[in-house]
Amino acid sequence: MNASDTSHHRWLWTGIILTGLFVLVPLLLSLAGRSYFYQIANTIMIFALLAASMHLVTGVAGLLQLGHAAFYGIGGYCAALLATHFKLSFVVTIPLAGMMAGLIAFLVAVPTMRLVSIYFAVATLGIGQMLHVITLNWVPVTKGPNGILLFGGMKVFDIDFSKPVPAYYLVAVIVAACIYVIHCLSHSYYGNALRALREDDQCADAMGINTPRLKLESFTVSGFFAGVAGALWAHTAGYISPADFNFNVSILILSMVVLGGLGSLPGSILGAIILIGLPEVLREFKAGDFRNIIIGIVLFGVILFQPRGLIGEVSALDFIRNQFGLGRKAKNDANKTDGKQMRVGWL
């Protein structure tokens, strides 16, 4: 591969994103000087990861997931229980929580994968409700509606990650790494295979795509990342209860994905920023009870006037593939083929 092959601006964009996440936002937060703002920033990042993980399974693979909060909750409870009962370091509980959520997602997916469209959606809805009821009623383990308080802080090598700034960086690093993986999956040819499932899974099967395996994989991976998000939530909030993971949360995540644009990863992230950030902004402006009405109007308006979402899938995919050079760089490669033809002509 020669130098002209790197006509995309991968490093520029990576630089912009990382500078924003690790320098600009913390700078603004420290200028604002209220630890509450750090908490909002963490919540936005956690929901960005939740929306990104749902984007993979619902936006790209086209499996309508109505129980995403279940895997978020499994991650949250898993991390909380491992930290309080087994006194595991929070660093260890995060991947373990993800794996547990991924495992449960896999077990749920095996029987439900044969279901299509609305039937699949209702099955996931059932999973979500089931988890909610379990967390409410399995009092000896989950402490029921009282929830679990995570005490003991988050210390590694004398850095106390329960302080606002380290906590922000912890969440930012993990969320960025997870979203990077989702980015690789959804924008590479693997993503094309998932999109083929969404568009017409029978036809994809006839093309040699192992559709049951891909559905299983995408659902499991999505569950894993939701579990990681749950663990981050448990540790940064310091307290979890069943209400954090109920049906409303599943719908909130789905709204983020649809608002930003089904199938569009940057859209999902933008959706999370808007639906978590906007209520807080409105709170600052003392919008009071009008807050929820305004959010409702925003959702309604976007769906009405921009049904493909704020950043539609097609433009998001074009932009990212061109700038990050995943899969094919549309125009360049076409020219390359033309060049070959011309050379043949000269000979």
Binding site: L185, Y189, Y190, N192, A193, A196, M207, G208, I209, V221
Partner: peptide
């Protein structure tokens, strides 16, 4: 992207392909 699906099937790509 439509055409890639045929080639993807032939290469039998999975999660590890990234």
């Amino acid at each position: 992207d439509n055409v890639t699906v045929g080639a993807i099937g032939h290469e039998n790509i999975g999660l590890g392909s990234i």
